[in-house]
Amino acid sequence: MDFKYKIIVIVILLSITGYLLVNPGSDYERIQIAGSTSVQPVAEQLAQEYMKTNSGVKINVQGGGSGLGIRSTQQEIIEIGTTSKALSAEEQEGLKEYIIGKEGIVIAINKENIVSDLTLTQIRDIFSGKITNWKDVGGANQQINVIIREEGSGTRTAFEEIVMGEDSIRSDSIVQSSTEMVKQAVIQDPNAVGVVSFAFLGDEVKALKVEGVAPSEQTIALELYTLQRPFIFLVKGEPEGALREFLRWVYSKEGQDVIRGEKIVPFIANVSDDV
């Protein structure tokens, strides 16, 4: 009796496996996206919306970091790599870049902090270690605790390029490995200042105005708020077939609406006719 049941179960399992082997969802076109964790949420949203209307395409989105995105696209492991920093000449080789949007980089402080507006020079001096006390920028007499992402992260690289110039970030600043962790660290320390991306900004922290301009979708779009970086889709060679269709959709009105919904400012300018 027992044996009979086992046979039945095995037969069912075998037939399912057999069916899957013969017919591995071959009607689907697959697109693999991986790379920058900052781009991941918007890429996931884009993929989800696209698959709603295009049932013949399966899009799989993963994180891993800008470096992984660039490497895997070069090695043709994935179809689209995502990065949140401009590529170096070496990294650019053989890759086609599609800028899908711009994102603000926000200088976040604890809500208890009374400082609300800094100039670019003040921000540079705080992060390079020339200013170490909040009272020098109009705050309380408290030591400034700098919290930053790790070297090579898109947020940090962009911040260094825009703000730091020749100066380097003070070497004793606390390093956290994700935007969310930087935010958590700022939430629990009244004297902390951290760099987070605009999309992750919540009510738990206070976003500083830079040169009198508060970060918002409008100020980023008009480039009044100067701390911003591009979100880029990378493709090896010329996109074809389903990939080409997807990229074209990203730049359509629906695609741009999805991007805007994720607090990313769409970047229409580089849409060319061949996409």
């Binding site: 891993g64 660039i70 990294e91 070297e151 090579g152 898109g154």
Partner: peptide
């Protein structure tokens, strides 16, 4: 763990 995600080339 911190730097693997963004490392390329010699850094990797």
């Amino acid at each position: 763990a911190i730097e693997m995600g963004y490392a390329t080339g010699l850094h990797y």
